[in-house]
């Protein structure tokens, strides 16, 4: 499939050099290579990440902050034949939308969630998010952030996600491969994409360039405890150099949410509704 067909005519308003360009490129390539453009719907939250809605020529729902996952979940209920890809920010997914993240890991709906994790709220000019490192100072935390960040990979695994990965937005080809695997995974697939903000969190670029390494086939992604251990190798902080693994941490099989509903085998758009009113009201006699 031609990559050009996935382009839109909208003017891209990300900052020059923004790592979101890497994610946009990887998504286009992944979707083109899987040849699923016609059967894919994307959902975005609100934030810099979400601008991707305007730059990708796919069916799409530009949602509201924090609600990417329930919207994606609803799209899948409404049309189980669609591939559904959610794009969220770290504030979007782990702050405002945390309850949905945990529960969607549990539900195991066949949707893919990609978080553009830049460890900061950028579009609102640089406040901390749940993945921002301790000590971070900004307009809303001038005294320095006292809390430690959450680890979304560990959280996803504990909550029951069946595909858990981390990527780096500057490793486009690696990211694209992960996206393809995530989209093909039957069940809830999650990629935490490290996408350092070059304005409000610029120091993570050199740090990640230095410390990121790719998981190779010595890592057993079917082993939950090993995967958990790997996920804990880096704690999203910048105090000292720590190796930052990227790749597929964990993958397992569990029936997808929608496969367990008999009525979704014959979704609403495949049936003609004819109400037998006599039968409906007879219950009340």
């Amino acid at each position: 499939m031609d990559l050009e067909k996935l382009k839109t005519n909208e003017i891209i308003t990300w900052c020059p050099g923004c790592l979101n360009f890497g994610i946009l490129q990887a998504v286009k390539e992944a979707i083109a290579e899987l040849n699923i453009a016609g059967s894919t719907a994307m959902v975005t939250g609100i934030g810099c990440h979400a601008k991707i809605y305007d730059y990708l020529n796919l069916k799409g729902f530009y949602g509201i902050h924090g609600r990417v996952l329930p919207i994606a979940f609803g799209i899948k209920l409404g049309n189980p034949d669609l591939k559904v890809i959610g794009f969220g920010g770290d504030g979007d997914t782990y702050a405002e939308g945390m309850e949905h993240f945990v529960h969607n890991c549990r539900y195991n709906t066949d949707i893919t969630m990609m978080v553009h994790n830049n460890q900061v709220f950028s579009l609102t000019t640089g406040q901390f998010t749940p993945t921002t490192e301790k000590g971070f100072k900004d307009g809303s935390s001038p005294l320095g952030l006292a809390e430690s960040p959450i680890n979304p990979l560990v959280l996803a695994m504990e909550a029951g996600a069946t595909f858990v990965a981390r990527a780096y937005a500057l490793e486009v080809s690696h990211l694209k491969d992960l996206m393809k695997r995530a989209i093909n995974h039957k069940g809830f697939s999650f990629i935490d994409i490290l996408q350092p903000c070059i304005v409000y969190h610029k120091y993570s670029v050199p740090y990640l360039n230095k410390n990121v390494y790719k998981l190779d086939n010595t890592h057993d992604a079917s082993n939950f405890n090993k995967a958990l251990e790997k996920a804990r190798e880096w704690d999203y902080s910048y105090e000292k150099d720590t190796k930052v693994p990227i790749g597929l941490f964990y993958e397992t099989k569990r029936p997808a949410f929608e496969s367990q509903w008999p009525q979704l085998k014959r979704p609403w758009y495949n049936i003609k509704r004819e109400v037998n009113w006599h039968n409906v009201i007879n219950k009340f006699k």
Binding site: I71, G74, I75, G78, H100
Partner: peptide, 30 residues
């Protein structure tokens, strides 16, 4: 099942209505 409708209880009311709008996007009446 008798009426071939899907009934589900999501994690909270915020999820309820946002999922409903996701389904509505696909043309389902919610």
């Amino acid at each position: 099942l008798e009426n071939n409708i899907l009934v589900f209880q999501p994690e909270n009311e915020i999820a309820v209505i946002n999922a409903a709008l996701g389904a509505s996007f696909t043309g389902a009446k919610v």
